[in-house]
Write a protein that binds this DNA or RNA. Structure first.
Lengths: 182, 182
DNA sequence: CGCGCGATTGAGTAATTTCAAATCTAGTGG
DNA sequence: CCACTAGATTTGAAATTACTCAATCGCGCG
């Protein structure tokens, strides 16, 4: 789990004690719109999705979260406001939960932990910029292929209609794409 | 400049000494594709844009950077690879430059600085997620209005065709939008 | 006064969406 | 083992939306 920094056993135990574990089943929600956002989640196994539903009842997926990914409604988590996202399980999952208080406490107590989280967010920031560039510059077909090469594991777990909702195209259009591709 | 943390005078001087200042003129580049990325830039005044040019010679803007914003080609900056972005000045600007070595050094030496940068990136991460949601869920008109309410200052500095390149629509389409709006 | 850049407008075209229907697939219970 | 069902995917045709290309307009600056 921690390959960016090295912790002593006591340090690790201390860090570990600030997380709680949770087993989740397919379709189970961890966050629903308008509820308070208590935790950030680290995915030990399984796969979740973070998304919004707009007025037309269309789902738009902000993020998938697979093994070793972190996920929550960050805006609400950091600001202490109620959720604007839904997050639920695409398949059975195990997660570790950490409250904002515990996270900030750990970051204060252990400089290395703050360093760890800074590096993590930096990497996440870069990934989001890449996604924005992909959304801006690429055709649906290119977006699909970029995702396929970047996260091939996704395609074993996730129905294509969710891929479509992540890429920002209709499922019909996505379907027509790889008909052409072959 | 630093309202998230408090530094003593000596600390501040120490931090300050790791930055170098630079005055830039309109149209001047700070980063060009394929060049090494030496610095992250903090914008003291003026306005820059970070963008790519695709095969069709179309510009797509990843980020504007106004007063108090940070900007660089983060992927290349952190990985030490050559730039994939152009960054240049929309108007005359003053920036502070910090190398990755200096940034990491400061973060090591002063816990509060690492805290500062963690908080900053967290906020940036949230902003990028908002942008992705906007790109996914909103019509061009809504995107335009969201940007207008979020960063009204932008519209005084930036020609509309650059706004279009940021929102992911053609300048003609953007033009037709606010014809309808009034 | 005229140049040049940015913004607008119009017409035709290309791409995607929408809606509806048909097909396929995996899991369930008999 | 088979039939059934719900969900997922595919296909078709029409409608919508944005794009492209070209021409025009407007305005600030030398």
């Amino acid at each position: 789990m921690e390959e960016l920094i090295t912790l002593s056993d006591t340090e690790f135990d201390h860090v570990w004690s600030h997380f709680s574990g949770k087993k989740l089943r397919k379709h189970q929600f961890v966050i629903q719109v308008d509820d308070p956002v208590r935790y950030e989640y680290f995915v030990v196994s399984g796969c979740l999705k973070a998304y919004v539903i707009n007025e037309d009842n269309k789902m738009h997926i902000l993020q998938f979260a697979m093994q070793n990914w972190w996920v929550t409604d960050y805006q609400s988590y950091y600001k202490g406001t109620n959720a604007k996202l839904y997050i639920d399980c695409i398949e059975d999952a195990e997660v570790l939960c950490i409250s904002l208080e515990n996270k900030d406490k750990l970051c204060n107590e252990i400089h290395k932990i703050e360093h760890f989280f800074r590096k993590k967010t930096n990497a996440g920031y870069v990934a989001l910029q890449q996604r924005i560039l992909s959304l801006l510059t690429s055709t649906p077909k290119e977006k699909y292929e970029q995702l396929l090469t970047q996260y091939p594991q996704l395609f074993q777990k996730v129905p294509k209609q969710l891929i479509a909702a992540y890429l920002g195209v209709s499922r019909e259009t996505l379907s027509r794409l790889y008909a052409v591709e072959k």
